[in-house]
């Protein structure tokens, strides 16, 4: 059965018909054309479909679209500034060669945006845990951790001390 779903996606409110059987990954990809949301396993194991829902990372393959009613969704397509500058996380992924085949990249970037958004400093070991819901077969995670360290450090220097979380980066 189709229902109307109203949510905010990348800063804009949308109201669209969705089949109640759809996952949020289906809806974002097929109805809104947000194909950065990749499907790698469809059971919440690989993290390729990760987006931020109200600022927290979720696997959208195991998230029914109707649950997103009234919520705010952020995908990689929503990260660039209105004038087109890359989010610092995206830039760090480029600079550290943290993308190879690129399939896990958008999901990892979204987790990274959540991590960076806390404004906290993390050790490399803590960062490993914070991205442990993503599988990457190309990089061995090293370059991804390098990118995260770089941008976490930049952000920490920029926004100051712990506890003053500025919320997820981007304009959601």
């Amino acid at each position: 059965m189709f229902k109307t779903l109203t949510m905010t996606v990348n800063g804009r409110e949308v109201s669209i018909p969705v089949d109640e059987r759809e996952s949020l990954a289906d809806t974002l990809r097929n109805r809104l054309g947000l194909t950065s949301v990749k499907k790698g396993c469809e059971v919440g194991e690989c993290g390729a479909c990760t987006v931020l829902i109200d600022g927290e990372a979720f696997d959208t393959c195991i998230y029914l679209s109707l649950w997103a009613e009234g919520r705010s969704i952020l995908t990689v397509e929503g990260l660039k500034s209105p004038t087109g500058e890359l989010n610092p996380v995206q830039q760090a992924f480029i600079d550290e060669a943290a993308t190879q085949c690129g399939f896990c990249t958008p999901g990892l970037i979204m987790s990274a945006v959540e991590i960076v958004g806390t404004g906290k400093r993390y050790s490399r070991e803590e960062l490993r845990k914070l991205i442990s819901g993503h599988l990457c077969r190309c990089t061995g995670y090293d370059s991804i951790l390098n990118a995260l360290e770089r941008v976490v450090e930049q952000t920490y220097k920029h926004v100051g001390h712990e506890g003053e979380a500025p919320g997820p980066a981007g304009h959601a």
Partner: peptide, 25 residues
């Protein structure tokens, strides 16, 4: 020279299209 990947920008912005992303409706 360690130049940046030529496809990095497309991949970090979600613009890089893989087979399923191109599938017509």
């Amino acid at each position: 020279d360690s130049i940046k990947r030529v496809d990095a920008y497309e991949k970090v912005t979600g613009a890089a299209k893989y087979t399923a992303d191109l599938m017509p409706a």
